[in-house]
């Protein structure tokens, strides 16, 4: 029998080997004290990041033009959320696919969101409004869908052309009640009322921030702040943290795929990368059963270093064990 064959034979019982005294409880106690002290020192020296959250109020005050453009898109049903597809709404062709697998569509619309109704019209209708806004709401409700869309499209285009996106500098017409509705929403946001409005919806206790977060994400203000901190998806943002803090470095492989082709430019990047990561995680889990990969430790011979004190006594030209008792 060759040496190699013998090495691959059954792994012996550890109890058969010579032993040395080893105090597990003492080892754990020392480790716990060391880790606790190290944690206390790192926390004292470096503290932790806590950048203030963005509110609809702070966003609308800092960048009214972006808020206005976003609100017009929410009303017209052309924002990112409005055209997202499942789980928020039915948008044909919006769902990602993993090859032939349409898991996003299969899960269905379970968090239904109508951006015009939920982000603009209901918050306006639920608050006491001056007559001009009440008239505008009534005009919007009375118009057919095609007319509503023509108004919002005309207004969004005009905003895009206006210097700095400033609503005050918009020229042209055919906007219907849209400028009044959006301007009133901006006022409510600036006063802080909209933050509460989007949250509460007739409830008192609230723990679900889906609506305000989606509204915020549809604008470009939040993303501009994030990109400045290297948090963008194409900046390896997933493993980064605000400021100079270390982030979730363990997400390096997941975020890596987003930086390269074919994922970088794929409309199905998320689904493809999730599928790939699921496969790789399964591979790591089942490594002991994968021929080739499971032999890497034997080939690299790092194990000779780890068990050098064993080999010092056990090795003979034949490679047989006879370590001392």
């Amino acid at each position: 029998m060759t040496r190699r064959r013998r090495e691959r034979a059954a792994v012996p019982d550890p109890a058969a080997f010579p032993t040395r005294s080893y105090d597990l409880v003492k080892e754990f106690t020392i480790a716990l004290v060391v880790v606790a002290l190290l944690t206390a020192a790192l926390a004292a020296v470096f503290s932790s990041p806590d950048d203030r959250p963005v509110t609809l109020a702070s966003w609308s005050r800092a960048d009214g033009a972006d808020f206005t453009a976003t609100a017009a898109a929410e009303l017209g049903g052309t924002s990112g959320t409005a055209e997202y597809g499942p789980p928020y709404n039915h948008t044909p062709g919006a769902a990602q696919k993993l090859g032939p697998l349409g898991l996003q569509s299969a899960a269905g619309v379970r968090i239904p969101i109508d951006t015009a109704e939920d982000f603009v019209l209901r918050p306006l209708a639920d608050a006491p409004q001056p007559p001009v806004v009440r008239v505008a709401l009534a005009a919007w409700a009375a118009a057919p869908a095609a007319r509503q869309q023509a108004w919002t499209k005309a207004y969004s285009d005009a905003l895009a052309k206006a210097p700095g996106g400033d609503p005050a500098k918009v020229t042209g017409g055919g906007f219907g009640p849209v400028p009044v509705l959006v301007a009133r929403l901006l006022d409510m946001a600036r006063s802080g009322a909209l933050d509460g409005q989007l949250q509460a919806e007739g409830k008192f206790y609230e723990t679900d921030y889906t609506r305000p977060l989606l509204f915020l994400s549809d604008g470009s203000y939040l993303e501009t702040l994030a990109r400045a901190q290297h948090l963008g998806g194409d900046q390896w943002g997933m493993m980064n943290e605000t400021g100079d803090y270390p982030g979730q470095a363990w997400l390096w492989l997941y975020t890596f795929w987003y930086q390269i082709e074919p994922f970088k430019s794929s409309g199905n990047a998320d689904a493809l990368i999730w599928g790939l990561m699921a496969l790789l995680s399964l591979g790591l889990m089942l490594l002991p059963f994968i021929p080739g990969l499971r032999s890497i430790p034997r080939w690299t011979r790092v194990h000779r270093l780890i068990w050098r004190s064993y080999h010092r006594t056990a090795d003979q030209p034949e490679g047989r064990d006879n370590s001392p008792g």
């Binding site: 990041p49 806590d50 950048d51 203030r52 959250p53 963005v54 997202y84 499942p86 789980p87 769902a95 990602q96 993993l98 898991l103 996003q104 299969a106 899960a107 269905g108 379970r110 968090i111 921030y209 977060l213 989606l214 915020l216 994400s217 939040l222 702040l225 994030a226 948090l231 998806g233 943002g237 997933m238 943290e241 605000t242 199905n268 998320d270 689904a271 990368i273 999730w274 599928g275």
Partner: peptide, 23 residues
Amino acid sequence: NFDSQWIAGQAKDGLNSVGIGAF
């Protein structure tokens, strides 16, 4: 905080793309 807002907004796309985000 800001970190949570941004991470939630980004992560939802990955989870939604494979149907997990619905639950």
